[in-house]
Design a protein around this nucleic acid. Structure first.
Length: 634
DNA sequence: GGGCCTTTGAAGCTG
DNA sequence: CAGCTTCAAAGGCCC
């Protein structure tokens, strides 16, 4: 695994993955079949994690040798390349594959953390700054961009047309961090420029004084067992707070930088959490030194989970849960008592949250940017955008997040050896537990998504017939007047229900396109020779809807899409394999899948700004009218 | 105040 | 083992 502490520029990053990618690129040969490509992709994806895991202890130098055999012709097949290229274009180069093999990928907490007590902004709490990542050459233009970003909350700069104006390379599609890094200076958060939201405001440097672990943590002995704790693995990222057994609150993994209140992150449970681990940074001396060398002292995480200020760490979820009604149940008094006991015990246990997965990490990092660019506030909409962007990310980019996620999991495991995801399942955790998720509608789980090329659209590009709130997704918040009653009340969309077989949507002139049977070959069958189909798709995508006025257009469009009759099974390609994680994963990395399901390529190819014209939206629908519609109803 | 929405991914659960 | 379910973050919205 790439060493965080590694001197030089390869601090961390998933060099391993990157290397492999590079190899793949070298071997870029002919690829051929989607099937093989898919397999390869799947392998690659898993390998992204596996490789790093297996190699975590090895030096980056040797990684190349141990690198798995090039698997990948398919990995980097032309389709993929073209897609990536398209994505790059769409994203204004944000995601262009970095030419840097060993980009320094430093995992640095985002200072603009929501964990701030006053953090109204919702910057990412735990973001990992990549020293090089999109080091897009923001250069000169970056000044403007920076300025623009400075007023992130202010109206988007003129050049920012809308959310995800991907067509403006390097101008707006940069995260604050990226911009900050654009000058090639490894500055994570400028000491001078204190972000309004920066948690540092709340904390004085003293709080972050490295090397001053709290007394209770100084002894590296498990308080519980008295057995000296094993040192943290060097490769573990410093994102997890310790879990001092007695300490009820743990700092956010990145708590040293993002102290906050009330945000539970990785609290410690009684169960099996043996004990306090020094902060990852503490544990990881190399990392710590790295950070110390790179960042001002106050940037360096404290060696202890409990902040000296006594401010509750976000990672901790206190269970101030009201006693459940069961207590009052006389009939089952005895059992109630027992239950109560159990509940109390559970309450006492801090809630340990699941480690963030790659996408979550990505979202955390990019959310703020999207919010600023798109002026969207609703997370649902933002997440949709992020989801598309995630798909648009190059493998390398995704690999970074997978690597981060892997480290998170690893660290999490180390910190909470006895923890299981099951612990957080409903019922196990007394904290606010979400109710059972909405019952799945028929067909849910096989939802077919369409990727609208235009990320700027606040309207969710994805049409999921089975998804509730169809109107919401279709029309967006701005057009609630178009929503059906139930949708307004957040109930099941009657339109959707009605439209299961037929379109209940309001008449729309251009809806015809959507209603029209799938004509696009690419749609119908993501042919293995994806290149061709892809081209076709690209050509066809920019169609009909393009001309529609954004709101109306999108609304009707979405509506039709959702209402559209089920596409032939053939249409139901893997792109919409359903929500199962497995399929989703593969889909994200599968070039073929991407090509078939992602209009991004086409979108990107379009010169016009998606943000401006919303043209992309229509196009996709045109080409993949039915595909959008998810799986066949029957 | 809590659930829903929405995304992907990880992991647990189920048949 | 495949498929399904739950949860992780986020913040506006609704009840």
């Amino acid at each position: 695994m790439p060493q965080l502490n590694g001197g030089g520029g390869d601090d961390l990053g998933a060099n391993d993955e990157m290397i492999s990618f590079k190899d793949e690129g070298e071997q870029e040969e002919k690829i051929s079949e989607n099937s093989s490509a898919e397999r390869d992709l799947a392998d690659v994806k898993s390998s992204l994690v596996n490789e790093s895991e297996t190699n975590q202890n090895s030096s980056s130098d040797s990684e190349a040798e141990r690198r798995p055999p090039p698997r990948s012709e398919s990995f980097r097949d032309k389709t993929r390349e073209s897609l990536e290229e398209a994505a790059k274009r769409q994203d204004g180069g944000l995601f262009k594959s970095p030419p840097y093999p060993g980009y320094p990928f430093i995992m640095i907490p985002d200072l603009t953390s929501p964990y701030l007590p006053n953090g109204s902004l919702s910057p990412t709490a735990r973001t990992y700054l990549q020293m090089k990542w999109p080091l897009l050459d923001v250069q000169a233009g970056s000044l403007q961009s920076r300025q623009a970003l400075k007023d992130a909350r202010s109206p988007s700069p003129a050049h920012i047309v809308g959310p995800f104006c991907l067509e403006f390379p390097g101008q707006t599609d940069l995260s604050l961090h990226q911009l900050q890094l654009s000058n090639k200076v490894p500055v994570v958060q400028h000491p001078h420029h204190v972000h309004p939201l920066t948690p540092l405001i709340t904390y004085s440097n003293e709080h972050f004084t490295p090397g001053n672990p709290p007394p209770h943590l100084q002894a590296d002995v498990d308080p519980k067992t008295g057995i000296p704790r094993p040192p943290h693995p060097s490769d573990i990222s410093p994102y997890y707070p310790l879990s001092p057994g007695t300490v009820g609150q743990i700092p956010h993994p990145l708590g040293w930088l993002v102290p906050q209140q009330g945000q539970p992150v990785y609290p410690i449970t009684t169960g099996g959490f043996r004990h306090p681990y020094p902060t990852a940074l503490t544990v990881n001396a190399s990392m710590s030194s790295l950070l110390s060398s790179r960042f001002p002292p106050h940037m360096v995480p404290p060696h202890h989970s409990l902040h000296t200020t006594g401010i509750p760490h976000p990672a901790i979820v206190t269970h101030n849960v009201k006693q459940e009604s069961s207590h009052s149940d006389i009939g089952s008094l005895n059992s109630s008592k027992q239950d109560a006991k159990k509940e109390e015990e559970k309450k006492k246990q801090p809630h340990i949250k699941k480690p963030l997965n790659a996408f979550m990490l990505y979202m955390k990092e990019m959310r703020a940017k999207v919010v600023a660019e798109c002026t969207l506030k609703e997370s649902a909409a933002i997440n949709q955008i992020l989801g598309r962007r995630w798909h648009a990310l190059s493998r390398e980019e995704q690999a970074k997040y997978y690597e981060l996620a892997r480290k998170e999991r690893q660290l999490h495991m180390q910190l909470y050896p006895g923890w299981s995801a099951r612990d957080n399942y409903a019922g196990n955790y007394q904290g606010k537990k979400k109710k059972r998720k909405r019952e799945k509608q028929a067909g849910e789980g096989n939802e077919h998504r369409e990727y609208f090329p235009n990320p700027c659209l606040s309207l969710p590009p994805i049409t999921d017939l089975s998804a509730p709130k169809k109107c919401r997704a279709r029309f967006g918040l701005d057009q609630q007047n178009n929503w059906c009653g139930p949708c307004r009340r957040k109930k099941k969309c009657i339109r959707y229900i009605q439209g299961e077989g037929s379109c209940a949507s309001p008449p729309s002139s251009d809806g015809s396109l959507l209603e029209s049977p799938p004509s696009s070959p690419s749609m119908v069958s993501p042919s293995p020779s994806s290149k061709e189909s892809k081209l076709q798709t690209e050509q066809m995508q920019p169609l009909s809807l393009t001309m529609k006025p954004p709101p109306l257009l999108s609304s009707s469009q979405h509506h039709h899409l959702s209402m559209a009759p089920p596409p032939p099974l053939a249409l139901l390609d893997n792109s919409v394999a359903g929500k199962t994680s497995g399929s989703a994963h593969n889909g994200s990395l599968d070039p073929s899948d991407v090509s078939s399901s992602r209009p991004t390529g086409s979108a990107s190819s379009r010169p016009t700004s998606a943000c401006h014209s919303h043209s992309l939206l229509p196009s996709s629908t045109t080409t993949q009218p039915l595909s959008l519609v998810t799986k066949s109803i029957d």
